[in-house]
Computed example of a mutant assay.
Amino acid sequence: MTSTTAPPPESAGGRTDLPPLDVLLPAAEHLPPDPREERLAALYAYGPPARGAHVVRANMVASVDGAAWGPDHRSGSINDDADWRVFRVLRALADVVLVGAGTARAEGYTALDRPRGLRHLHDAPLELAIVTRTGRVPEALARGDRAPFVLTGPAGAAAARGAVPADRVLVVGHDAEGTSPGPDAAVDLAAGLAALADRGLARVLTEGGPTLLGDLLAADLVDELCVTTTPTVVGQGPGRIVAGAAPSGTTALPPRGARLAHLLHSPEDRPGSPAGTTAARWLLPIG
């Protein structure tokens, strides 16, 4: 999960106090702070769709020992300014941010806007879509000025339509037996992504949480996995960036290969951004 904790104030042209980044792979390069972030955005440019009409990029942050959050159960307690720099660019390039309703509630999501100073990278509105089996929408989003899209199954349709306008509700689910919907009716993520693409929202950025990322991986719907590792050690307690039950009859998904597209490193040690943060972009082949 990535944090939505408010950053320090920005100037009209964007922040210039963020840490520089070294591109370790594919070739050594230095990216000093840049209000327009055009070179960093080029590294994260979306590729063509490989699994249909959409491209799904996941962005997560983890500690060195694999924790997905810190003592406050929020990712903001383990991220830093180097992670924030990448986070802003990823949001600037996406059409829609996809999150689980639990993550939206825990991280305090509200209606999204393009990061200040980066609207030149993509001038369309940035949409938010949440996934919820029950159809319950976090109150802060239901009462907001711009409602999110809600991906839910038949059992959650009524609750979702009671919380947000009906045209923002995408009913894309079925129960395990394929009969009448029950409280555990699954959300068909593939159908949900297709429905978003039909609305012009093909460049998808999912920010978790771990259960949603696990479900997307299990359905082979993730094209890219971007993982920032911050130089922190949390210890026992927090979960990994991927969670959820493994497919029936298994203990884990079969291991699959991934190709490293690039690896960034923050060399500077400063308050809020200690040296050693890395940001990796992994490309996942179709399973």
Rank of each mutant, 00 (worst) to 15 (best):
A6G: 14
R15D: 01
T16L: 13
L21G: 00
D22H: 15
D22G: 11
P26V: 04
L31G: 03
P33K: 02
D34P: 01
A45G: 08
A50V: 07
M60F: 07
G70D: 05
D72V: 00
G76V: 02
D81H: 06
R85K: 14
R85D: 00
V86W: 00
V86K: 01
F87S: 08
F87W: 14
L93C: 11
L98Q: 09
A106C: 03
G108P: 04
R114T: 00
G117T: 07
R119F: 11
H122Y: 09
D123M: 11
L126N: 07
A129L: 07
V137Y: 05
L141Q: 02
A147Q: 14
A147V: 08
A157E: 14
R161I: 00
D167P: 00
R168G: 04
R168E: 12
G173F: 12
A176H: 08
G178I: 03
P181N: 04
D184I: 03
A185R: 06
V187A: 12
L201R: 02
T206N: 03
L212C: 09
D215C: 13
A219N: 08
V222P: 03
T230C: 12
P231Y: 07
V233K: 11
T251F: 03
A252D: 15
A252M: 15
L253N: 10
P255T: 14
G257S: 13
A258Q: 08
L260Y: 09
R270L: 04
R270I: 01
S273K: 01
W282E: 06
W282L: 14
L284I: 02
L284K: 10
